[in-house]
Nucleic acid binder design. Structure first.
Length: 493
RNA sequence: CGGGGUAUAGCGCAGUUGGUAGCGUUCCUGGUUUGGGACCAGGCGGUCGUGUGUUCGAGUCACACUGCCCCGACCA
């Protein structure tokens, strides 16, 4: 069955080990060093580029434009918004000097003590502060609003512990920052962008997500509301895959961004911010991959089809080359990316294993035997099923297969997730079951105390108040107090 | 920053009571192969993490330091 995922269905799988073996071999990344900085090799970066370009189209469809703001932020900016500094100050890298000099023994360099900065600079952990400092100059009147900017950049957060793709110190992301004249418009924008993320996750990444709103303790530092998409990995743990924040007037007030409304009265601007990061690549890997390597959704695969010839003589190879050139042209005309690998230095078996590791969705094999019969062997990466098809019209077979794979891996992930969502009203039962992972829908009295107790006793956290389920009042399973709705609880990465 | 591991060839590892370093793999050369990660032969490659000490002699013993991995606190 499609849901069979070798090895990874066992809870014993250690994702770190799996990453080191699989991801490194798959040439996605070379290392996660002590600072958790990552090397993304060309193949891995190609996946990120696909994510970027597809998401960028979605943003632009909602009127968002790209811009760029500085990497370094004056330290004082961070202290303008009290909650924001509280949330990020602990994990900031700080620039204190601007020059090095050769040391006394002339065999190295030291920081030049004379080059100390008057005011230290922070390497951006996120750009709300520097962007809102800029928006102050851009916004004078309600006619200047809304401002809908996004930037693709790197950020740095000095995490205590890092994990490849899920929590590296430096990571690539996009951060959107919008300014609005009204509360409603800003709230709508925050929710709109969450929907963009959710649609992207499900339609492009084939990763089913649960949309919801964060509890107060899990909220972004400085936000009034944080909306989130939560995905389930193959071990039943949750991965927060994207967030969208309604920031109210907090940053407008902190950076004194006012505009004159239609009544000629000054008002503070309303804000949102929203982002997704290279963590999405972690989600992609951890949702679909199996023991043979990556399984990439066709819509994001840098390479959708690989064609491998099998031959003995030069005449045979020439004949195959000619035939493949034709097939390749037809496929490319349909917008499908194709690689023909007739490298004679590598044996077919090696190529098969290698492209499987890289997650190429469809493999076509053409040998001398097929040339006689007018056929080809075609394999789909998601199920590893092979079939022999006629060369006549093969491009349509491939097109359909790509669509089918995209749909199938989504459905497979969705089925897996749905089978691991439980409604639970008994705390003892919850404590026992959460050990095996999964998402739990439980009543919550809304207090931080209950939340803290659950976290301490089970390591699980409230991921969100989900939108997508019908809600009825009930009783908190921990405190026994009344509850308005169920929340999603899970262990998370 | 706490707790536990570990450090020997590019990678993965072995190395006995202390006697001067080896296996697998990668890589290179030649040949045979090619429908699921080929085989044979030959070859390149190591201040044994760093420092100090014990000893006639240290990869091995002692002490110190450093790096890395795992677990926890922090987090998208």
């Amino acid at each position: 069955m499609a849901t069979e995922i070798k090895g990874l269905t066992k809870r014993s799988v250690n994702y770190s080990q799996w990453y080191n073996e699989l991801v490194v071999k798959a040439e996605l990344a070379e290392q996660a060093d002590v600072r958790g900085c990552m090397v993304i090799r060309p193949y891995g970066y190609a996946i990120w580029e696909k994510i970027q370009s597809e998401l960028d189209k979605q943003f632009k469809a909602t009127g968002v434009q790209n811009a760029y703001f500085p990497l370094l932020i004056p330290k004082s900016f961070l202290s303008r918004e009290a909650e924001h500094v509280e949330g990020f100050a602990k994990e900031c890298a700080v620039v204190t000097h601007y020059r090095l000099k050769t040391n006394e023994t002339h065999d190295g360099v030291v920081v030049d003590p004379n080059a100390k900065l008057e005011e230290e600079l922070i390497i951006r952990p996120t750009s709300e502060t520097i962007i809102w400092n800029t928006y102050k100059n851009w916004i004078k009147s309600y006619r200047d609003l809304p401002i809908l900017c996004n930037q693709w950049c790197n950020v740095m957060r000095w995490e205590m512990r890092t994990r490849l793709f899920l929590r590296t110190s430096e990571f690539l992301w996009q951060e959107g920052h919008t300014a609005h004249a009204t509360r409603e418009e800003a709230e709508d924008r925050a929710k709109m962008m969450l929907k963009v993320y959710a649609d992207f996750a499900e339609k492009y990444m084939a990763v089913p997500v649960i949309q919801g709103v964060k509890s107060e303790t899990e909220r972004f530092a400085g936000a009034l509301d944080t909306y989130t998409i939560e995905a389930m990995m193959q071990d039943g743990k949750a991965l927060q895959s994207g967030t969208s924040h309604f920031l109210g007037q907090n940053f407008g007030k902190a950076f004194d961004v006012t505009f004159l409304n239609k009544e000629n009265k000054p008002e503070y601007a309303w804000a949102t911010s929203w982002g997704v990061s290279t963590r999405l690549m972690g989600a992609l890997i951890m949702t679909h991959s199996d023991d043979n390597g990556l399984v990439l959704p066709p819509r994001l695969a840098p390479l959708q089809v690989v064609i491998v010839p099998i031959w003995k003589t030069d005449e045979q190879l020439n004949a195959i080359n000619n035939k493949v050139a034709e097939i390749k042209a037809n496929l490319e005309a349909m917008g499908i990316s194709v690689k023909y690998d007739n490298d004679d230095q590598k044996r077919p078996g090696f190529k098969f294993a290698d492209y499987e590791l890289k997650g190429v969705p469809v493999r076509i094999v053409i040998g001398a035997r097929d040339m006689e019969n007018g056929t080809a062997e075609i394999m789909r990466r998601d199920t590893l099923e092979k079939q022999t098809v006629t060369l006549e019209g093969i491009e349509y077979t491939v097109k359909n297969l790509l669509d089918d794979i995209q749909e199938n891996i989504y459905k497979r992930a969705l089925d897996y997730r749905n089978q691991h969502i439980y409604e639970c009203d008994n705390y003892d039962e919850f404590k026992e079951k959460i050990k095996d992972g999964g998402f739990f829908l439980c009543h919550w009295d809304g207090t931080a105390e209950t939340e803290a107790k659950i976290k301490e006793e089970t390591q699980a956290t409230i991921r969100c108040v989900p939108y997508m389920f019908e809600q009825t009042p009930g009783t908190d399973m921990v405190s026994g107090k009344p509850s308005k709705y169920r929340v999603l609880i899970a262990r998370a990465y």
